[in-house]
């Protein structure tokens, strides 16, 4: 097809499912993995607890948990549940797995800095994200079973996981940004077409998370709070 033909398509043409089907993905995965999402809750709590310590070992453990969350939400939600109704989502699922692998590589190969950082505000942002974002699909679906946990739901995982940027060295940050930015673009377009307005806060939170992470990370010549 020519470029003009492609331009004749609208975003709607590429979203092959309705909002009901999408929101039920959250309900279904929560039903299917019960009670294992309690593990996801523990991880979501353990990460900020580790971040409160300023030592490198705790940071690496925290980032290791975030890495697992990327992999779990990518393979579980995106590949397993979303991919069958939307093939680009399956690709994003594998991209999330790669993103988790990248974070694990940063942990193993010196991509985590050990300089002091303003961990108080960082932890506060983390808790606000994991506790606030999980309700957005609930509001849209009208069912608490649609709760979007960190490590289960990709939107919450991406938005919260961006705060890990604050702990990474410069050379690794660029690599870590690619998937979340593409995911934010993709998911924002999808939520727009589906008219699930509350869910648009997820890609917005991801972008805010990136900004916050850069703000909280220590810079040369600037004293951490």
């Amino acid at each position: 097809m020519s470029g003009a033909d492609w331009l004749s398509y609208s975003l709607q043409d590429f979203v092959m499912f309705g909002p009901q089907v999408f929101l039920r993905l959250f309900v279904r995965i929560n039903q299917d993995i019960w009670p294992w999402q309690l593990l996801a809750v523990l991880v979501a709590i353990a990460v900020p607890a580790l971040l409160l310590k300023q030592d490198g070992r705790s940071r690496r453990m925290a980032l290791g948990l975030v890495s697992m969350a990327w992999i779990a939400s990518g393979y579980g939600f995106l590949v397993g549940y979303f991919g069958p109704i939307n093939w680009p989502a399956g690709w994003f699922g594998w991209a999330f797995v790669v993103q988790g692998g990248l974070l694990a590589a940063a942990v193993l190969f010196g991509g985590v800095h050990e300089r002091r950082l303003r961990n108080g505000p960082l932890v506060l942002c983390w808790l606000m994200a994991v506790c606030g974002l999980l309700w957005l699909p609930v509001v849209e679906a009208g069912s608490w079973q649609a709760i979007a946990l960190f490590g289960v739901a990709p939107g919450t995982t991406a938005a919260t996981g961006m705060l890990a940027l604050a702990l990474m060295t410069g050379s690794w940050r660029g690599l870590y940004l690619i998937v979340p930015l593409l995911w934010s673009l993709f998911s924002a377009a999808m939520f727009w077409v589906l008219k699930t307005w509350w869910l648009l806060l997820l890609p917005m939170a991801t972008l805010m998370g990136i900004g916050a992470a850069f703000w909280f990370s220590p810079r040369q010549g600037r004293s951490p709070g």
Binding site: M16, F17, G18, V21, R24, L25, P84, I85
Partner: peptide, 13 residues
């Protein structure tokens, strides 16, 4: 069946 029958493995749907 465009959109309407794309419900994946959702047994209820």
């Amino acid at each position: 069946t465009w959109i309407t029958f794309n419900v994946g493995g959702d047994t209820k749907l």
